[in-house]
Nucleic acid binder design. Structure first.
Ligand SMILES: [Zn+2]
Ligand SMILES: [Zn+2]
Ligand SMILES: [Zn+2]
Ligand SMILES: [Zn+2]
Lengths: 138, 138
DNA sequence: TGAAAAGCCTGAAGTGGCTTCAGGGTCAAG
DNA sequence: CTTGACCCTGAAGCCACTTCAGGCTTTTCA
């Protein structure tokens, strides 16, 4: 199976597949005489594994750790658990941030019901005011 | 006021301030004889404006648009309203994604109560299973 | 007075996770 | 034999910064 078919059957772009190979997340495939990459079912699985982890918001570094853990079946899965706990905490924190952001954005949006002139626009006035009194403090 | 004081009084790193200048988000400051940047209160306000917009998750390109709108007080604020509406929709969508992600992560985490061997770890087994049946489809 | 320390300068490169581009080579069909 | 689909490589671009290398200016204080 060459790279185009792998791409089609996983929904991953060709360039991304080559990128994962460079990053050593996918094992180096065989080559044809014409230097085309040749993939096996094992590659399909590994690529899907990567994409599934990515869909769970894992970084490539974290995916690398998971692959390592998975391929050392004698070890314990402590690191896997820790990684997931950390990820859950991260996502929870991000959701909280975004909830606050939603409130702020909606409140700001409410300050301009119908488009006025810039001079009197509640949104721009509030943005300027916030800048002056330094509401930011991220 | 030189760059260090501006940085201290706004909480923005010196390198970031210089970066904003390169990106033409901050007006070019005066210079001393020794080529040090000299800022005015106007710069402080503009920098705070930028950071407040950034804290609302605006991109620098969007901040640029807001600054333009603000500085053309004769125009209408239609673009500002549209920008905010779009941003609100983006954040809402992201929050929904993250809620789904929270569910998935918690469910996955529940598959390994106490750290086993890798061979029998419910988390790794599920990751492998998901890869095989292609649950991903991001 | 002279040297160390603190502050500032520039341009370039690095970050992550890809995507895009330029400039080719390989292979099957007509 | 040529067209077009497919593949190759290495380099650069994206965003919003951060870091680094190497050097200049100003203040401090012994
Ligand atoms: Zn809320
Ligand atoms: Zn308005
Ligand atoms: Zn919620
Ligand atoms: Zn486990």
């Amino acid at each position: 199976m060459q790279i185009g078919e792998l791409a089609r059957s996983t929904g991953v772009k060709i360039e991304t597949i080559r990128y994962y190979e460079r990053e050593q997340l996918l094992p180096v495939p065989q080559r044809t005489d014409g230097n085309y990459r040749l993939y096996s079912p094992r590659h399909v699985e590994q690529l899907r594994f990567i994409r599934y982890c990515r869909s769970l918001d894992m970084s490539l570094e974290e995916v690398r750790l998971l692959i390592e853990a998975r391929d050392a079946p004698a070890g314990s899965c402590l690191t896997v658990n820790a990684l997931l706990d950390e990820k859950i905490a991260e996502v929870d924190a991000r959701v909280n941030e975004l909830h606050k952001l939603q409130d702020q954005l909606r409140q700001l949006r409410g300050l301009c019901q119908q488009p006025d002139e810039v001079k009197t626009c509640g949104i721009l006035m509030e943005l300027n005011r916030s800048a002056r009194i330094d509401k930011a403090q991220i």
